[in-house]
Amino acid sequence: MSIYVGNLSYQVREEDLREVFAEYGTVKKVQLPTDRDTGRVRGFAFVEMQSDEEEERAIEALDGAEWMGRDLKVNKARPRPERNSQRSYSSGGGNWGNSGRNNRRY
């Protein structure tokens, strides 16, 4: 199981999260996603702890708590939906410019 932590300050660091969650048990992993273009923290994170009991304690204690000027949203992370690696393109809907008319070049 993993914990979703939302509404984070943009100044938060991985070490900050480890320190806060360590009060409730052993932190195994912290993921703090950043924006690809800016490198800025995206405002949420995922924390994995040693046991489900530790995660439950952290969720109960930290959900709604104010930290770094923000009210945290802390809950069980939902599984990531699987992405289809092959895109499906519809074959219907016309010839898309192969009809001989309106074949403009730009």
Rank of each mutant, 00 (worst) to 15 (best):
M1V: 07
S2L: 06
S2F: 07
Y4W: 15
Y4R: 07
Y4S: 09
V5W: 10
G6R: 13
G6D: 11
L8N: 00
Y10E: 08
Y10R: 15
Y10S: 12
Q11M: 10
E14M: 03
D16V: 00
D16M: 02
V20W: 02
V20P: 02
A22N: 08
A22K: 09
A22R: 11
E23P: 04
V27K: 01
K28M: 08
L32A: 10
R36N: 05
D37L: 14
G39Q: 04
G39V: 07
V41I: 05
V41Y: 00
R42A: 01
F44T: 11
F44A: 02
A45S: 11
A45K: 07
F46V: 06
F46Q: 03
V47G: 02
E48L: 04
E48V: 10
E48K: 13
M49G: 01
M49N: 05
Q50T: 00
Q50A: 14
Q50L: 06
D52F: 14
D52H: 13
D52T: 12
E56Y: 05
R57F: 00
R57Y: 04
A61T: 05
L62D: 03
L62T: 01
D63M: 07
D63S: 09
D63K: 09
G64S: 03
A65G: 03
A65S: 14
M68E: 12
M68L: 15
G69C: 06
R70D: 02
R70S: 05
D71V: 13
L72Q: 01
L72G: 01
N75D: 13
N75W: 00
N75V: 09
N75S: 14
R78K: 15
R80I: 11
R80V: 13
E82K: 15
E82C: 10
N84A: 12
N84T: 04
Q86M: 13
R87T: 13
S88G: 08
S88V: 09
S90R: 13
S91I: 06
S91C: 05
G92L: 09
G92M: 08
G92N: 04
G92R: 03
G93P: 07
G93L: 01
G94I: 01
G94H: 00
N95I: 08
N95D: 08
W96N: 11
W96R: 14
W96Y: 14
G97Q: 05
N98V: 05
S99T: 12
G100M: 07
G100A: 01
N102Q: 11
N103I: 02
Y106S: 13
